[in-house]
Amino acid sequence: MMQKKVCMLGGFAVGKTSLVRRFVSNVFSDHYHTTIGVTVEKKSVTVDDRDVMLVLWDLYGEDEFQRVRDSYLRGSSGYILVMDGTRRATLDAAFALQQTALQTVGTVPFISIINKADVRSEWEIDERTIEQLRERGWTVLFGSAKLGQGVEELFVTLATQIVHAAPIPRDCL
């Protein structure tokens, strides 16, 4: 089975671990528990009738306490930029991490998701900003790890982009 490394990137407390846990185990906790280092999870998805094993590297959130190590990003086939719609500052963290990822792994597929769609009325990221992100070529999805909205779509869409971007290995044909 094809295996693809996917890194979860974003500022702290944006919901990276929650998205992974909702996707892998279909569970959610309101309690915030910061990630230290990396936790690796796996889950397979089907793309074009082929199973693809996503190896999800849930990295710690970047802030003034922890900088993401380049070594964690190496070998990634794609990455997910997670933002918290209720905190505009997480958009800046996403911009910085996207640049780091670009320098480390090059132009691999990535998808951005604005999490916490369940409290849309409290969002600080407005439509105009979202439009500007899309104008930059970003794929922007909305989701809620709490409600499970947009989670499956997020990983399947990225897996599809990765599969379509990469040449099909001989042993997978």
Binding site: F12, A13, Y32, H33, T34, I36, G61, D63, F65, Q66, R87, A89
Partner: peptide
């Protein structure tokens, strides 16, 4: 211990935000 410190610091930052 370090993890606990980071956890508290981030919780405080979130509360402050």
């Amino acid at each position: 211990e370090m993890g606990t410190i980071v956890q508290r610091a981030r919780e405080r930052m979130l509360a402050e935000e």
